[in-house]
Simulated assay, not measured.
Amino acid sequence: MNLDTEDSIMQNISPKVQNQFAMLQQVQQQLQTVLSQKAQYEMAVREAKRAAEEVKDAADDTPMYLSIGTVMVQKKKDYIDGKLTEKVETLELRIKSLEKQETLLQGKFEQLQSQIKAALEGKGAPNAA
């Protein structure tokens, strides 16, 4: 379909449906952003858990370092273990928050989609507004 055909189709659609379609696209973009952030946090959780396992398996006197910005600082095993546990907990809270956003956006997306579909199907019916 070329742009001229798309423009003529959009001209035949009511401004309300055009607005709903724009909102649908916006919700879809927000949903993609949330899903991308969620995937990044899930990967960070996996990495932190893997690091925590390595720390737990290491002997108590094993030298360990924590990255603070561009500097590596030697810290005790218990301190690093605590920091990793804290990081996992924080990331998992963020994931739960993103999952709530995802559910809300998915519901809004489906609602807009069905409204647009109903409006477009009603367009062909006689006396449709």
Rank of each mutant, 00 (worst) to 15 (best):
E53A: 09
Q26A: 12
T33R: 13
A22S: 15
Q30I: 05
Q30V: 04
T33I: 08
A51G: 00
Q32F: 05
E47R: 03
E53P: 00
K38V: 11
Q40H: 09
V45M: 07
A51V: 04
Q37P: 02
T33Y: 07
D57Y: 05
Y41P: 09
Q29V: 14
A58D: 03
E42Q: 15
R46E: 11
Q28V: 06
A52V: 01
Q29N: 14
T62E: 00
T33G: 10
M43K: 13
L31K: 08
K38N: 10
Q32W: 06
R50I: 01
K38F: 08
K38P: 08
R46W: 05
A52K: 06
A58H: 04
V27H: 12
E42A: 12
A44R: 04
A58G: 03
Q40D: 14
P63R: 02
Q32R: 08
Q28R: 11
Q32V: 10
A58M: 05
V55I: 10
V27M: 08
D61V: 01
Q25N: 13
F21D: 13
A59H: 00
Q28K: 15
A52H: 07
E54A: 11
L35W: 03
Q25S: 11
R46D: 12
A22Y: 12
A59E: 01
A44G: 03
K49Q: 13
T62D: 00
S36A: 13
V34R: 11
